[in-house]
Simulated scan of single mutants.
Amino acid sequence: MSEQTQDHQSLISKAGFETRAIHAGYEPDPTTGAVIPPIFATSTYKQDGVGGLRGGYEYSRSANPTRTALEGNLAALEEGERAFAFASGLAAEDTLVRSTCRPGDHVVIPDDAYGGTYRLFDKVERAWGVEHTPAPVSDIDRVRAAIRPGQTKLVWLETPTNPLLNIGDIEALASVAHEAGALLVVDNTFASPYLQQPLTLGADVVVHSTTKYAGGHSDVVGGALVVRGHDLAEQVAFHQNAIGAVAGPFDAFLTLRGLKTLGVRMDRHCDNAEKVVEFLTEDRRVDSVIYPGLIEHPGHRIASRQMKRYGGMVSFRVSGGEEQALAVCERTEVFTLGESLGGVESLIEHPGRMTHASVAGTALEVPADLVRLSVGIETVEDLVADLDRALG
């Protein structure tokens, strides 16, 4: 990297979020002046002599210029030391566990964790010898009690959680984890780096399913880790290369394209979610609405302190139980019945039968009458009218 490029990126690193989202991690191509990173669809690179790497590239599992641009951008947005892009969010999670844990170690996870995360720890990491204990992220004392001194290596936090939107105090939980010699890992998928930067609050690692708000258009699957601290970054870098579940160049290109509009999209997601919440809270066909922006939400005060706004995810429980919840999910026309979240289009799902089916019958089982919304950026009046019709 030239001195001029270093100076420019240093300037960008101090700029506002939207400026970093557009400019961080990449300089216009010196040959063509291309302002958007090209898709480097290559597996290998010509070396300048034996062991003489040109720009540090030798093989695209180890590094690819398109992926490098994405990783630089993510590190800037999360204010981390380094970022690492993976083929999926779960690939990122598994690589992190392999980087930091060994058989016999222990992890504390949320007691309402994303179903895929629970399945990873319960069915994959447990078989490898890593044990886990669920604890409510909103109860600092219970998280502390779940830690096994000398054995717990990671305290795993989602905030907001999926799908019950519980809030954990990142700063306080970082202190609890560090007192025990553990790392605090924060899954920041629901908030995105636009609404929350956990590393600035004391977290050690941020996890993203970049499939969701980062990509933002439901056209790519990916994951990321962003870390603070040189030694941890070196551990993750080694395992990313050794395990090899990396983001391909086209996936990296699409995710980076999505990140450039993250700020404006998140503002619209939040605007629409607030209007949807207002409608649902006043509707007698709805028993309760779960949204951190509501004053009555038990995590509202903490969310107000550590988040810029409250996000585009809304959950609610319907009158009439599971049968009515399923009916609502099947009746919508503007909200698409589907898994995933964070795209420009609005999605509706029944967590108990869909994204969280893997926790059925466990302590993490979600209520049968729960409906989860990923509120998109459509005309909000159309979204409200659609839910009104679906509620019947």
Rank of each mutant, 00 (worst) to 15 (best):
I109T: 12
I243G: 00
R102I: 01
G168A: 03
D122F: 05
E365T: 14
R144P: 01
I147Y: 09
H239Q: 11
S209A: 15
A127T: 13
A385S: 15
T211Q: 13
E339G: 13
A363M: 10
R389I: 07
V371F: 07
R372P: 01
V277C: 03
V318T: 13
E93M: 14
G244L: 07
V286D: 09
G376Q: 03
F84T: 01
A191V: 05
A92I: 05
V246P: 06
M266S: 06
Q197F: 01
M266K: 04
T189W: 09
F253C: 12
W128D: 09
E339H: 08
L370F: 10
I290W: 08
A177R: 01
D112M: 12
G80V: 02
T362C: 07
L373A: 04
G361E: 03
L53A: 14
R353I: 11
Y194N: 02
P249C: 00
F253L: 09
L77V: 05
H106D: 08
H106M: 04
R317I: 08
G392S: 11
H208K: 00
P193C: 03
L383N: 07
G361S: 06
R148D: 03
I295Q: 14
V207L: 15
R228D: 00
L199P: 01
D122N: 15
G258T: 06
I39T: 12
G116F: 12
S10V: 02
D231R: 00
S13E: 11
L262P: 02
F250T: 15
G216N: 00
K123M: 11
V221I: 14
H23D: 12
S88H: 06
G321K: 04
T66I: 06
A360S: 14
P110G: 09
T117E: 08
K14Q: 15
N73I: 03
A233S: 12
Q197N: 14
S209K: 06
E131L: 10
P351N: 10
E93Y: 09
E27L: 08
S374P: 09
F250Y: 13
R102D: 08
I36K: 10
P65G: 02
L364E: 14
A390G: 06
N188W: 00
D112G: 07
I170L: 00
E296K: 12
S319F: 05
S218E: 14
E234L: 00
P160E: 10
A247K: 02
T66R: 08
G342R: 07
R268I: 13
V380I: 12
V97G: 02
V137S: 04
G299Y: 01
G33I: 09
V264K: 13
S288C: 11
Y45F: 15
R126T: 14
V206A: 15
S340K: 14
G222F: 06
S218N: 13
E330A: 15
G223A: 03
T42K: 14
F17R: 07
